[in-house]
Design a protein around this nucleic acid. Sequence first.
RNA 1: GCGGAAGUGGUGAAAUGGCAAACACACUAGCCUUAGGAGCUAGCGCCCAAAAGGCUUGCGGGUUCAAGUCCCGCCUUCCGCACCA
Length: 833
Amino acid sequence: MAEDNELRYDPAQIEPKWQERWAAEPRLYAAEPADCGKPKYYVLEMLPYPSGQLHMGHVRNYSIGDALARHMWMRGYNVLHPMGWDAFGLPAENAALKNHTPPREWTLSNIAGMKRQFERLGMGFDWATEVTTCLPDYYRWNQWFFLRMYEKGLAYRKKSKVNWCPDCATVLANEQVVNGCCWRHETTLVEQRDLVQWFFRITAYAQELLDGLDKLDGWPEKVRTMQRNWIGRSEGTEVDFAVEGSAEKIRVFTTRVDTIFGATSVQLAPQHALVAEFTAADARLKAQVDELLEQQKKAREAGDLGAIEKHGVPTGRFAFNPYNGQRVPIWVANYILADYGTGAIMSVPGHDERDFEFAMKYGLPIIQVIQPIQNVESVERLPFCSEDGVLMNSGEYDGLSCAEAQKRLQEAAALGGFGEATVTFRLKDWGVSRQRYWGTPIPMIHCERDGLVPVPDDQLPVLLPEQIEITQQGGSPLGRVPEFVNVTCPKCGGPALRETDTMDTFVDSSWYFYRYTDAKNAKAPFDPQVVKYWFPIDQYIGGVEHAILHLIYSRFWTKVMRDLGLVEIDEPVRRQFSQGMVIKDRAKMSKSKGNVVSPDDMVARYGADSARMYSLFAAPPDRDLDWQEDGVAGVSRFLGRVWRLVTKYAPVARSARGQQADAPTGISLKLLRKLHQTTAKITQDFEGRWHFNTCVAAIMELVNELQAADAQLAAGEVAAPVMHELLRTLVLLLAPFAPYLAAELWQTLGEEGAVLRAPWPGSNAELAREDELEIPVQINGKLVTVVRVAMDATQQAMEAAALGDEKVLSRTSGKSVAKVIVVPGKLVNLVVK
RNA sequence: GCGGAAGUGGUGAAAUGGCAAACACACUAGCCUUAGGAGCUAGCGCCCAAAAGGCUUGCGGGUUCAAGUCCCGCCUUCCGCACCA
């Protein structure tokens, strides 16, 4: 059957051919200048780390974004759809250790390979704006921004306890510590070390970052909630307790100042400055505190600081409650965090779970100062932690509600000069120093005479030396390159040393999407006018794993740039979408589980269109997707049906190009109706609902209906102009999801130009309308039968049709119909008694 | 503990208060054939021999003419945060 062979969909024939043509025509996916007259649309997917291989999560991410970009192109928008590489980072150094390949070489060759994968998948990226973060023309601007932030006091250095991963031999940000372990080495415990580090003052924007979330209504609630929790705003009061026999004061932070008359001790974090003073003259106390520190360290390293067993030691010293002069003991406790609030608390066992537990353990007094408002019996046991009560045992404040008392006590503290209302954030400044090689060098110089000296702008970029031996020794690898380290001080000309730390790679990804708009600019990170045109990003798409780190840093960076006068916007991203994970056999794909599916393999077996379309079809985009190869095969068979259908009837359709169809009737009307319904559904979904799985299903339904009418089509019962509209529109609808097949069939239909530039089909509501409807008839809410009525049937007509139905008659005989509910176009429900 | 999302056939899922299970996968039976990982036809939630009929969206209540969908209370799973004072 030679004919059957001809009618065979073969993506291996179709796809490489179009890939070649597209590569030869780079303007196809390029954005146009601002004066092109079209509305702009910036669709962005998170850029990949060039590990060497795209994985299925990437395929899904970019299939979603590419479908959207293609749709917007067809809708006539000026679309910016760029791609780049988050190319700095540790894996390149690990690879260097393993195979002695220089990180730069390893990275660039991975990029080349992954770019080939992208092209083979048919992704419509504008490669002219490609950004590679490890190249000097990009990272020099990291350095430039760093200097601007240094000038503004937003970049600073301080000694601090840092998270140290012994495997990475570097510092980690708080955000990179997962359950006490390194985010890269899931079983390696993170240690605490003291180092002088560079920080970005993200806390200066804490309130604005929090407030901004309320306005980001195009963002998933989940992401906004995660960021709110991460910022962790907490309102409270700081109060000074004077230390007996000393000029020192202990400032405590509390959210429940209304309970302060119940404070029976003050608790200090072991790292608190005053503790060192107390222990200096007391070796026994020092040993005890050291033990608390050790417990805390162990708990932190085990990842369950929350589960630490509470221990404390009395210092033998006392402090005074400023409100009532009450003398309370000062303790040091292992569960008090040095880096939250003031590192000191007042302990109120009567009204706090933890304080209660601690007081019971060490026999500290418990005083009730809040009288529950209701249900005295059910809450008579302490601790009573709700704010639903009134004060007692609190002097002049007795009888006040908790909320009112908090206000009054804050006022009293301010007036008395021993405290104030404060806001505390959980968010910490962003530690950006890394003792690694493969990152952006921090552009600072240490001069013995002038101290810290910024590298002058005209000496940027500070180039990363290329010839370097990567070893696993501690300390920064750059420190072992004398040509790099030894410089002359820009201020005094004397000998000086370069900073050898490099920047966290999250710096690179905090502003890369601005660079896309003006990627070749050698004078500035970008032209503010160009950015003004393209920003904010209309749609950002990426994995939920970046809900906190990347998406908070990016927002911070935009606000900093705004304050530097570089941009006018407050937020970089208008709409954010977090796609679900790709899993297999109910587990995340990973090498250790052996359940990894390779995109190359899928493309080789089924073609890029099938792999892409399956990734959209198998689940709604925001849900996890269980990869089932049989499903890919199914999509591939479907595309085969489309291919055969269009190929078979293309000659008829071509013959009618440009011809006007007569008013359709019969099967023509039926098929056109389905066509316009499908178009309406898909168009609507692109506008926000994004259930691309049902879009694909709708196209399948359309094709099924065409196929069911095959005998009539073959008999010529459908006029050529109708065939033309049916097939042409089908190809247009397919174009965002299966770009290769669409391009091929577009040509088969004799159409000229790129399908990508063809206008998205409109839906004719008149044609989409059914003229008859099947109306379910219920009795007391239960389905009894279905009656056919005209589309525009009146309520009376619908009621009559329902009441006249045989089944209805037999069930209502002898009973009375109390009420008839008629929902026009929907259903009839009879209330029968 | 706090916050978020979810729970529907053998499987992935659909249904924006109005016919639960669309569209697929898998499976079963049949056809076709240059045996292809192809194509075509039919069946496929559960109970019942079948039909008629009944039942069915984690559990229990409620609102409504009508609830997978809204409300209240539980259970389970996943995710984020967590002695944050």
